[in-house]
Design a protein around this nucleic acid. Structure first.
Lengths: 210, 210
DNA sequence: GTCTATAAGATGATAGAC
DNA sequence: GTCTATCATCTTATAGAC
């Protein structure tokens, strides 16, 4: 909370790295202490428990991320731009907070069942609401196909975006903005050749099977 | 191996369900025994260890799945059809072997580091080869955009397909074939309205930022 | 094929000295 | 702020009776 808590922040960052890399449950209090160069007992001078560490990491991260989503939703941008911005903000989160994203991806299910972690389910519902609002705006404004299955598309987007934390590494050829742009392009326009009209009959959903 | 090992198969299926639901590491030998209605010690009459259970589950599943991929690669179908078939086969695997897919998704990283699980990395490389071959065939035959980032597209596909095991439930409105078809449609044609030519200037990659 | 009993080790957490 | 020392609990796995 104050600027004086440098050591505490340091330990929290180390814990985050360990949780993200090994998984929350796999990571022992001794692992964290080892990485910090102290003994396990000393950690309890800074934190109440292993749970309180992961709680603090996830809470702070999500507060920030959802603040950005809210800003996009409240903006005057057109539907397509809002979608692009939401993608960019998400990949930016993967770039700047890879550990928190990884912990959420890998351990949210398990953590959510623990006492005091109910906000994880709330945030999940909120995220769903953000994307579905964006998609519905897109359909309403004619930017997106009217026949879209909104729920399925939402899941498609959510999964593609966040699972990227498994492979995306800063400095690995593509910046997070470039990845975001390419993902938006695939999502909106697909990977097939542009000659859509020419092969429209073949390109539309196959209906061979009854 | 023989048809007489019914009880063994039963226990293996129970273990698979527990591993998939709780995660491999979270699942204790007692959990499995409880679910089977026996005591933990009794499990060791059927299996050498907890590791040997998960090994058997993953090995058998992957042998079957990659047999199907090989068949697609060897077929005479055009590139688009091969891609569609690969999607269908994958979602079929999610339908028929959800536990094995979930275990692979959630625990492959950790299991891969254990002795005797090197084949997991091999299968991963093989899967990559399958999809990249299909994508390259698509580009070569003019079905897919020539400017495609093959590696990124491969990761995009891999992630979207397998992560679906987290939400797909049989009997939940959409069959696995329908999900596969919708995913292929989004991937190939995108979710934007068909008027691509009309707004081509806006639709192509945004280049505002330097 | 399952049970009882238990070994051997790791884990999260605590109390109090320095 | 860190260490020493330690607890209670849970874990995989084993030995041998039924």
């Amino acid at each position: 909370m104050s600027a004086a808590s440098t050591r505490r922040d340091e330990l929290l960052a180390i814990a985050g790295e360990r949780f993200a890399t090994q998984g929350y449950k796999f990571t022992t209090v001794r692992d964290i202490a080892d990485a910090a160069g102290i003994l396990s007992g000393s950690l309890y001078h800074h934190f109440d428990s292993k749970e309180s560490m992961v709680d603090e990491l996830l809470r702070d991260f999500q507060d920030q991320l959802f603040g950005q989503y809210d800003e996009i939703l409240a903006s005057d941008d057109d539907a397509r731009t809002k979608l692009e911005r939401a993608f960019r903000v998400s990949f930016e989160a993967i770039e700047n907070h890879p550990h928190e994203v990884a912990i959420f991806q890998n351990d949210a299910d398990h953590l959510g069942r623990l006492d005091g972690f109910g906000y994880l389910a709330d945030r999940n519902a909120q995220s769903r609401q953000v994307w579905i609002t964006l998609l519905e705006e897109g359909v309403a404004s004619g930017v997106l196909r009217a026949d879209l299955d909104i729920t399925l598309t939402y899941r498609f987007i959510r999964d593609t975006v966040w699972v990227a934390v498994r492979w995306y590494r800063p400095g690995g050829g593509l910046t997070h903005t470039e990845v975001a742009d390419q993902y938006v392009r695939i999502l909106l326009d697909g990977i097939a050749t542009d000659g859509r009209g020419a092969r429209a009959a073949t390109v539309s959903r196959p209906r061979k099977r009854k």
